[in-house]
Design a protein around this nucleic acid. Structure first.
Length: 280
DNA sequence: AAACAAACCTGTGCGC
DNA sequence: TGCGCACAGGTTTGTT
């Protein structure tokens, strides 16, 4: 479900309520959601501690604690983080719930909800190497310095198809299936175009569209698809789906060129949407 | 190095 | 109405 724009929207919708809040209760209902450590590590690491900052790298969310530990949350396909009144009924598939106390505010509960249970919550000390994959992440287009030269050196010379490179989190962190398709469409490039055949002018277009799509999507609060699964921590849906030009538009006429019919092809277990006329 | 399939799970929507 | 199948925003692991 969530890609960079959705994860960033979740982070922003949580930040004010989280920072300065102290964890006074930790409920773990599904061990799988905290599988990277034993559950006692999660409980002991959080209980009584205060959140100091939130930040994001790619699709990884971090919540730092005053004791030096951090909590990492990855939503994977179906995860959600929700803020709710502690006495409000919990959503189905609520696997972790943190009761938060904060001076001058009503207590709130932070809930990790995840039907497919691919997502996870990790509480770790930065000295331990519990989230090694974060060290392998490539540039974050909105957090890191992401000028053209940085982009070029990240993707330069890859003898792979464009979509595979865009989805590779060790090259650029945060792009998933929806935004990869939308970026390629705006750049007028096919998914299977070998990146090492792109000229500098084309790389510049690709770079510009990557930033443009992600920025616009964040400004729109992300994309909520027809299943309405994605919402931010306050339950608000995104509206960027209205701007999708290819994703989930198979069979429709291309909005950009007015001539092509959007196609959908499957490869490596993912579907790719594109316009056969304006993407070459 | 790169491409692909399978694995991890649950829910939903579709055709019959 | 019910059943079986395809498919879903991600990532890792193992195989060609």
């Amino acid at each position: 479900m969530p890609e960079l724009p959705e994860v960033e929207t979740v982070r922003r919708s949580l930040d004010t309520a989280i920072v300065g809040s102290r964890v006074i209760r930790v409920d773990i209902g599904r061990l799988r959601s905290v599988r990277r450590t034993r559950p006692e590590v999660v409980r002991a690491g959080l209980l009584g501690e205060t959140f100091t900052t939130t930040y994001r790298r790619g699709k990884y969310l971090f919540f730092d604690l005053a004791n030096g530990n951090s909590m990492m949350v990855h939503l994977r396909m179906s995860g959600r983080l929700l803020l709710a009144a502690p006495d409000a009924p919990r959503e189905a598939h609520t696997h972790v719930a943190l009761l938060l106390e904060r001076s001058g505010a009503e207590p709130t509960e932070l809930r990790f909800v995840d039907p497919r249970t691919f997502g996870e919550v990790v509480v770790f000390n930065p000295d331990d190497d519990l989230v090694p994959e974060v060290g392998r992440l490539g540039l974050d287009p909105l957090v890191d310095e992401f000028g053209f030269e940085a982009f070029r050196s990240a993707v330069a010379g890859r003898r792979r198809g464009l979509k595979a490179v865009l989805l590779d989190q060790t090259v650029i962190a945060g792009i998933g299936n929806i935004y990869a398709d939308e970026i390629m469409h705006r750049a007028h490039m096919r998914w299977d175009r070998r990146v090492d055949t792109l000229a500098t002018a084309q790389l510049k277009v690709l770079h510009r569209m990557t930033v443009e799509v992600l920025r616009e999507a964040v400004a729109a609060g992300g994309s909520t698809l027809s299943d309405t699964q994605y919402v931010d921590a306050l339950g608000r849906q995104g509206i960027f789906q209205a701007e999708h030009r290819v994703y989930a538009r198979e069979g429709e006429r291309c909005i950009t060129c007015g001539r092509g019919i959007i196609r959908r092809v499957t490869g490596a277990g993912r579907s790719t949407h594109f316009c056969p006329v304006c993407q070459r």
